[in-house]
Simulated scan of single mutants.
Amino acid sequence: MKIDANWAFADVQKNAKFKWDFLPIPGKDGQRVPLITDYIGMAQNTKHPKEAMEFIKFLTYSKDGWLERINNIETPIVTMPLLNDREVWDAYLQTTFTAPGLKDIIAGIPNGFVDG
């Protein structure tokens, strides 16, 4: 058994010596998806605030940014999409390093809990 998170998908896909899947954490009322947030920001004194904001948007909530990251830039991508867009999630799920159980995880996101 290995407990890890989605940022380890590429390593597990490449190096695991066992059949693996990705499952939510069990709880007394059934399985729930732990949600772990990261933060991104820009320095107050940046010389290029508009460009910095465009880059932040690209990394976080831009559909075009996510599709570009998934398909061309981050191979493998080490985070899950942050927006509710079918095309983005379909592209993410078609990557070679995601696990079959991820579809169940995604369906459980609305009932997830913040894991500190």
Rank of each mutant, 00 (worst) to 15 (best):
V78W: 11
I105Q: 09
P81L: 06
M80Y: 01
N15G: 07
N45F: 10
D64H: 09
V12C: 00
D38V: 05
Q44R: 12
Q13C: 08
K50A: 14
L35C: 07
K14F: 04
A10E: 06
K50H: 10
I25Y: 14
D4L: 02
R69G: 03
K19M: 04
P24K: 03
A107K: 12
T60A: 10
R86S: 12
N71Y: 07
I3A: 08
G41R: 00
N71R: 09
T98Y: 03
A16I: 00
K28R: 15
A5Y: 13
G65K: 00
M1E: 03
A5D: 15
G30T: 02
R86W: 07
D38G: 11
A99Y: 08
D90I: 07
G112Q: 02
I77F: 03
D115N: 09
E68Q: 14
K63C: 01
W7K: 02
W89V: 03
A43K: 15
K47I: 11
L59M: 15
T37G: 14
Q13F: 05
D21V: 00
N111S: 14
H48T: 15
D115H: 14
T96E: 15
P100M: 02
R32V: 02
Q31H: 14
N71Q: 09
D29C: 04
F55D: 13
G101F: 02
P26K: 07
V12H: 00
P81T: 01
I25E: 15
K28M: 10
W66K: 03
D104H: 06
F113Q: 14
V12G: 00
L82Y: 14
P76R: 00
K47C: 07
K19I: 09
I25M: 15
D29R: 08
F9M: 03
G116H: 13
P24V: 02
F97Q: 07
K28G: 11
M80G: 02
P81W: 00
V33C: 06
F113T: 06
K17T: 06
V88I: 09
G112S: 07
D64R: 05
G108I: 03
I36V: 14
N72G: 11
K14E: 11
K17W: 05
Y92I: 01
G30A: 11
Q31F: 13
Q13S: 06
D104R: 09
Q13V: 04
I40N: 05
